[in-house]
Nucleic acid binder design. Structure first.
Lengths: 249, 249
DNA sequence: CTTTATTGCGTCAAAGTGACACATTAAGTT
DNA sequence: AACTTAATGTGTCACTTTGACGCAATAAAG
């Protein structure tokens, strides 16, 4: 167990990352399985004393999973007392997962900042767990394992935030391969929303946003009629992110 | 100067409240004028070690302004290093505003959680400044005084968040008197958006949401035709808050 | 060559939106 | 008391967006 010098960190402040990917028509989150425990956890960690919180989130994600330079979006601060579970830290000590110094540090009251990111599933190959974890895996949101502390609630809140953003912001640029078909994009939306959409109206609405480019090519190999391949117009995609899709007023 | 026992607080964590009101067709924020300084500040303070952050915000607002039981909405954590200004704390000490103990506490690195609330201007009568401040006043957003630290940025972010929410959530229940006219509601929207709206289309759209009740009465006394008085249907208002106005999908 | 399931494109009615005309009314003016 | 003024209430009309669905084109399998 490497020594973790604890006094370089900002006291009582942590970050937790909800990393969402999309694969086989399922929304998945990247989770760490804690050593010697049956519970799973979001990749999270501490903020250094002279480090921006946003940057800490990026660093922590890298340290704990190997994912590099992910664009993380802050979505909520979880600041209720009682986030901690009675006996949680003692359990870790007794199982030899953490040492006494770290345990003392962990026993203080913590608030945590939630961040989320949407990443392309296939670009994350064999994420590397750190020394606290025995594995790092994609787990389907529809069949989540038991999560430690309030990580279940954090994940839920990230999902809800995402669903709301779908109404006024484009989504998919970091979640899909560079080129994708309309049915694939639709499947992403349907999964995020938990709701079926009409194929034809979806295409019309999506094209109306003007953020998609139809490449001349089709995806072949599957059965039946081969669909067109699309890319995002990154310039216009970013404009839509900033300005919103349905300005409303 | 009352002694402020500093070790009951969570280290390096503060809350700041953006309180917005609407008066004479202007959006105003409640600000504190710091003693012996030309700068103004948002009402803010520290979180106790065994206190929910949300509850701390409510308490702090009460302690610093006298406003009671305001519903505060968390909107962002400001966590960059360099939020602090060089020499800011020393200045306070030299002017005798704070003592050495508080100064030492303040010199650590802080992150702050931003909260906002919309309140009815007229219900806030003579807000009371605390011992750190020499006054507590409504200041128009269009002519803000100089704010200390990054409070200007915090206020700006609250305003932007509000503007975005206007697209999918009803607004006005806590910002207007219980009964109000359609032109008054429209003026609120126009001020928040910084944009003129068509009178007739505004009314149609607003009524379409089904959250307004037209009382049988009119507002008399003004010149010209007297407008109807409306109330919010609080039941439906809350439903719209939860479900969103323009579901989108 | 036929079958089958999927994709692309189009239609149509209903609802929503933006721009505007016109009638109504309360207070001030003459 | 009649007139003027400016704000409010209601309605219209064309255009766009949305929801629901029909039909033809196509890639692979039998």
């Amino acid at each position: 167990m490497p020594a973790l010098s604890v006094d370089k960190f900002h006291p009582g402040l942590s970050v937790d990352c909800v990393i969402l990917g999309f694969h086989q028509n399922e929304l998945k989150a990247l989770l760490l399985k804690m050593k010697k425990m049956d519970k799973w956890a979001l990749p999270g960690g501490f903020v250094e004393k002279e480090e921006d919180v946003d940057k800490a989130a990026v660093r922590v994600l890298w340290e704990r999973t190997g994912l590099k330079d992910i664009f993380l979006q802050q979505f909520y601060l979880f600041g209720d007392v009682g986030r901690e579970e009675e006996g949680h830290v003692e359990g870790l000590v007794q199982k030899g997962v953490i040492d006494r110094e770290l345990a003392g540090w962990l026993k203080q009251r913590f608030v945590t900042v939630g961040y989320y990111a949407l990443v392309e599933y296939s670009q994350v190959e064999a994420p590397q767990p750190d020394y606290l974890s025995e594995s790092c895996e994609w787990r389907s949101l529809s069949a989540l394992p038991e999560l430690m502390l309030d990580h279940g609630r954090i994940l839920e809140k990230a999902h809800a935030t995402l669903k709301r953003q779908l109404n006024y912001q484009p989504i998919g640029l970091n979640l899909l391969p560079r080129r994708f078909t309309m049915p694939e994009l639709q499947a992403l939306y349907e999964t995020l929303l938990g709701q079926k959409l009409d194929r034809r109206n979806f295409q019309r609405k999506m094209m109306g946003y003007g953020i998609l480019i139809r490449t001349g090519e089709r995806r072949t190999g599957g059965a039946h009629k081969s669909p067109w391949l699309y890319e995002f117009d990154e310039e216009k995609y970013r404009q839509s992110l900033a300005g919103g899709l349905n300005a409303g007023w």
